[in-house]
Structures are given as structure tokens and as C-alpha cells.
């Protein structure tokens, strides 16, 4: 199970990378893509959209099922990755390089509430039982 130590995580299986400038890059975890299977459709939030923490803001669909992606913290969408929309299978190939969107957080301190790799690992293990 691939859970990079330098990323933050949500209980709803998003990963978050805190960039040097304080912005956040968001995608779905390896575990999430593994549960969903072959991705065939991804829809990102529009740039400029303001999101509340936990708001449904993107959709990933595999052959099997559709799944919502939630805003890890409150903030404004400053970029969306068109490449994953045109090649949804890139999320299956490497979930951590196939980022979905970037957020400018409303409060820089909010990222502290996200899970670290160890806590996320525990969560994934508990869901397996």
C-alpha cells in the first residue's frame, strides 16, 4: 500500500500536498483508485470557485462506479488539471502524480487538521476489516 510520508490525507481518501507558497495540491489516494478500479471520467471544479471544507467539488468515475471528491479544507480553486480529465487512467497509473486541482486555503492553519501518513494508514487498515 502506497502512502507517501510527505503528504497529508483526508478520511474521504484525498491526498494533499502543501506547496512552498502555501497553496495545496489535491488528488485521490492510491487506495481510493484501487477501490474504484479503471478510471474513465474525471470532472474538476472550475478555477476561481470557492469551496467550503468537505464540499463536493469533483467527480471521479471508474467503469464500476462514480465517486465524489471533497474539498480537504476551505479555499479557492486556483488551478485544475486538464490532463487527468483527458486521461483519467493516469490516476490508476500513479495516483500521487495525477493531481486534480490546486487550492489556496482560506486559513493556512487548516491543513494541520488533516491526517498524516501514519493516521491515514491506520484508517485504511481499519476499513479493510
Amino acid at each position: 500500500m502506497s502512502i507517501p510520508a510527505d503528504l497529508k490525507y483526508t478520511p474521504s481518501h484525498e491526498w494533499v500536498r502543501v506547496e512552498a507558497d502555501g497553496t495545496l495540491t489535491v488528488g485521490i489516494t492510491h487506495h481510493a483508485q484501487d477501490l474504484l478500479g479503471d478510471m474513465v471520467f474525471i470532472e474538476n471544479p472550475a478555477t476561481g470557485r470557492t469551496l467550503a471544507k468537505g464540499e463536493e467539488c469533483a467527480v471521479v468515475e471508474s467503469v464500476k462506479a462514480a465517486s465524489d471528491v471533497y474539498a480537504p479544507v476551505a479555499g479557492e480553486v486556483i488551478a485544475a488539471n486538464g490532463d487527468v480529465e483527458s486521461s483519467p487512467e493516469s490516476v490508476n497509473k500513479d495516483a500521487y502524480s495525477a493531481w486534480m486541482f490546486k487550492l489556496k486555503p482560506a486559513n493556512a492553519g487548516d491543513v494541520a487538521e488533516l491526517l498524516d501518513a501514519a493516521a491515514y494508514q491506520k484508517l485504511v487498515e481499519s476499513e479493510a476489516h
Binding site: G37, D38, V40, V63, K64, N92
Partner: peptide, 8 residues
Amino acid sequence: PVNYGSQI
């Protein structure tokens, strides 16, 4: 078995 790797 739902798949053995990739459904597609």
C-alpha cells in the same frame, strides 16, 4: 472475482 487487475 470482480477483476484480476484491470477490468478494461
